[in-house]
Design a protein around this nucleic acid. Structure first.
Lengths: 344, 344
DNA sequence: ACAACGAAGTTAAACGTTTTTATCGTCCAT
DNA sequence: ATGGACGATAAAAACGTTTAACTTCGTTGT
């Protein structure tokens, strides 16, 4: 029992394989009645398109490469956990298309660069989705130079525009800073991602501007850049709370570092709401389970992920990238008043 | 500038494409000198094997399907986050092979069943990796019936043996129960995964046996089955702590439910170490950042994930499944003494 | 009435491999 | 010298699809 091919249908209907092929893809060159016959026969024999034939003939792979930068296997840290939901969101967005998600796990930026060059030059996929963009990202230049469809999770500044999805980090920090200032905070710490990441820069710049607007001085001791692990959050709370003039609020870039910040509070005997508060950016809705629950800017990760999937499809169809750019504003969820109960 | 093929090399060397093909795959039918010439030419023209040709010819896909059961896009909960690390571990294990990880995100068990049937019957992959196994898992029967290579993350009881990797849940619960009993606990709650999951059953049975060994009564009110979200942990602490005879220890099946349990403690004003303690199974090393840090049975997820990758490769090579079965014992990390400071 | 045309199919080539079968020397035993 | 065996390479077919080029036939305009 061989798997049926278009040849099977051709024999079944007495037509040629060319006509069968055209009928199945709704070519206008074949009469509706003929098409009906073909479709009927296809269903009867249980025909399913064999992608390998298509791929060889057309050169298309029907694969979307998702590049996932995760820490090395030795390094077990709570980092990059949101990738799971990101990937399923993308996968679902491609569900009704012939495309599949092909996963490329890389350890660092250099590896992702190498993988992307390979995918582009060897056409191992029809489209690429990357995250962790830098302001001037060489991977983006590679893909643009080859006119290769791609979407980034995160913005960048390039001469040629590209498709992207991102949280609106500028607005988020601006709103968040204004809110804290309004609640009496004068020393606000920023726990930021690595400074070469595009959104790290955006957040930092927005932070500085917010300070200026509020007429507050900038103190470099209140800003940390690093990999957003719990360890990072913890260590920075430990050092910053030892300052002669410690911060009364910490803005954490994700929930992992916020959890670590709590751990630092516990170590130092700091009480959330009395000595200082923690705000976070959250995409897994986990900070509602912190003790106490904290105020977060919540962007359900399903939103950007399904957009990423939709955008890569449209890019592969040839749609210009200008129309495929979205900044999503996270929703403020106030779980704390965030005013300090006793002035330090 | 076309991409070079074996035809290019054939012209370059004056040999036939058949000889070139054989030379490149180290067939003994070709003289070493001839092979050297071929290899040299291949490198000179920058030849790379075109997978589409071999896929069509051989019928192999060089894809490993990873089935990932994640909650629907609407449902943003901290669940399944360990998939990210699981997937990268698998991806890295396949790195030096020609195989790639193809991702299939499904919403529930039924969907995963349908997808697997499709992959098997349409040969959309050469191997499958699944998780969330049930004691008697219809997906496993599907794959076994078709003699399709697969590895499961989680055990099952089937007449025919299959390749699997899992944590040693039986031992883990046994050790963990004995340790708590030794520290004076008489009312121990079990926050368990859904009862149709194989490891849920294993854990539950081990729990009951441990109670018997310790001479303690079984109280159904101290056992909960459910999706291991923070909400699950929280709600069960809330209801169980309201019992007239509440538990003094909670064994949580993962770190998400442990976090939720802490949230429940906070809500009820319970103090960890005084009123009750929480133990957890951890694979992301995150419970060290809880306040206070708790005792966990830690299995770095990189271990099972790289085994999964290695095993699926060996299964696809035809190795019998009996040799590809591993139970990993998590490491006990005591971050608390777990004796209650004041008898309730 | 006839060239030109268009609609609807067919033929055949092509994509890049692998693999079965055929060819051609060379060497050895008889 | 002749036949057979063997080692190394070549020729050709095949995997399933798409598509350019061609055929056929009925219709249309002059």
């Amino acid at each position: 029992m061989q798997r049926p091919t278009i040849k099977t249908i051709a024999q079944e209907t007495g037509l040629s394989i060319a006509t069968v092929s055209k009928a199945l893809k709704h070519s206008p060159q074949v009469r509706p009645e003929t098409r009906a016959i073909v479709i009927e026969a296809a269903e009867r024999v249980g025909y399913e398109l064999n992608m390998h034939g298509v791929q060889l003939r057309t050169g298309k792979t029907y694969q979307v490469a998702a590049i996932m930068t995760a820490p090395g296997p030795k390094q077990n840290e709570w980092e990059g956990v949101e990738y799971a939901q990101l990937l399923s969101g993308i996968s679902w967005a491609l569900e009704d298309s012939p495309y599949r998600v092909s996963l490329y796990a890389v350890r660092n930026f250099e590896e992702s660069q190498a993988i992307i060059k390979q995918i582009v030059s060897l056409k191992k996929a029809d489209g690429i989705i990357i995250s962790g963009t830098r302001a001037d990202d060489p991977r983006i230049r590679t893909m643009q130079a080859a006119d290769f469809p791609f979407v980034t999770y995160g913005t960048s500044v390039h001469n040629a525009p590209h498709a992207y999805v991102d949280a609106d980090n500028e607005q988020m920090i601006r709103v968040s800073m204004a809110r804290l200032v309004e609640r009496g905070h004068r020393r606000i710490a920023l726990l930021n991602p690595l400074s070469d990441l595009s959104y790290g820069i955006t957040r930092f710049e927005s932070y500085r501007r917010a300070l200026e607007v509020a007429g507050l001085p900038f103190d470099p001791a209140l800003v940390a850049h690093g990999r957003l692990t719990p360890a990072f959050g913890r260590e920075n709370v430990l050092t910053m709370s030892d300052l002669s003039n410690p911060p009364t609020a910490y803005i954490c870039a994700n929930e992992a570092s916020a959890l670590g910040a709590f751990s630092g509070f516990h170590e130092r005997g700091l009480v959330h709401g009395r000595d200082a508060v923690i705000n976070a950016t959250d995409d897994l809705n986990v900070s509602q389970y912190f003790a106490p629950p904290i105020t977060t800017y919540y962007l359900p990760i399903s939103e950007p992920s399904s957009l990423l999937g939709a955008y890569i499809l449209r890019r592969m169809e040839g749609e210009p990238p200008e129309a495929l750019q979205t900044l999503l504003m996270p929703k403020l969820i106030e779980r704390c008043d965030d005013r300090l109960t006793s002035k330090r």
